[in-house]
């Protein structure tokens, strides 16, 4: 469904991404991991159509992506909530862009706030919500206008461990329920293994896909503590090995600069 073909992005004479190849199937949950500054956010901006690649192609249903569109929903790391609107108003904001009639907007917004577990918080402003709740609002907003693809840029990075884990479970639940295609960016190995069906590991500057790893943790419902299972440890180690060299290389580059 999504295809990246030798995608390269330069900023002036600085190359952020150098030939990224990646395929994402419809309904797939793909996680992209990479060291800091390897171009993960740049890649997401390209997928969102906010910037254009220097060379290479990004395809959605076989057609080149040439601008932003409501077929893709973005969840930003910094939540990007409108502080003057309530939780409900923020979710409605996405719906206004799609031209859903006013009455239906409120109804839909309530429904999606309910989906992310925020019933009863509709009238709160962002500053009256915790970090986890804010990110839930942002997720509800991007789900509400029903995009095919959800693009998420380190959405849980700023949250504490417990909140993060519960939001991860919630995201998986939502994904199973809605069947969305999800491209999820993180620098956390555990998060990548826990969430992804497929994990693409990026190299440090300039970014390209070093390896993609298929993750199969078996039936989630059967395992009590998935994170301490043997399979989890195996994948965790595999990705750690892949990333380790890259992080070391990134640090050397940092010093050399």
């Amino acid at each position: 469904m999504i295809g990246l073909r030798a995608v390269t992005k330069d900023f002036g004479d600085f190359t952020a991404l150098a030939g990224v190849d990646l395929d994402v199937a419809a309904g797939e949950f793909v996680v992209i991991v990479g060291p800091s500054g390897c171009g993960k956010s740049t890649l997401l901006d390209l997928l969102a159509g906010l910037t254009a690649p220097t060379s290479g192609q990004l395809l959605l249903h076989g057609k080149p992506i040439n601008g932003p569109g409501l077929d893709r929903g973005i969840v930003f790391q910094q939540y990007a909530l409108l502080p003057w609107r309530t939780a409900l108003g923020n979710v409605e904001f996405g719906l206004e862009a799609t031209g859903v009639p006013r009455r239906e907007r409120t109804e839909r917004a309530r429904e999606f706030l309910d989906l992310v577990g925020l019933t009863g918080f509709e009238q709160r402003h962002p500053h009256e919500l915790s970090g986890g709740m804010r990110q839930r609002v942002a997720i509800a907003r991007s789900l509400a206008y029903d995009p095919e693809v959800l693009l998420m840029d380190e959405p849980f990075a700023a949250l504490d461990a417990q909140t993060r884990e519960s939001l991860q479970d919630e995201l998986l639940r939502i994904w199973e329920r809605t069947g969305k295609t999800i491209v999820f960016i993180t620098h956390g190995i555990d998060e990548a293994v826990y969430l992804g069906q497929k994990v693409a590991v990026l190299t440090s500057r300039p970014g390209r896909v070093k390896r993609t790893v298929q993750i199969d943790l078996g039936n989630r419902a059967e395992v009590r503590d998935l994170r301490s299972s043997e399979k989890f440890a195996h994948y965790r180690h595999e990705i750690w090995e892949l990333l380790h060299d890259e992080v070391a290389r990134a640090q050397r580059l940092e010093v050399a600069r």
Binding site: A48, G49, L50, G67, P68, G69, L70, R72, I74, F76, Q78, A80, L82, F93, G94, E96, A97
Partner: peptide, 16 residues
Amino acid sequence: PTLLKLARSLDLPPIR
């Protein structure tokens, strides 16, 4: 700027 980015990702016309 993240709000501007959000608006752009929603393809909001300049007036809106």
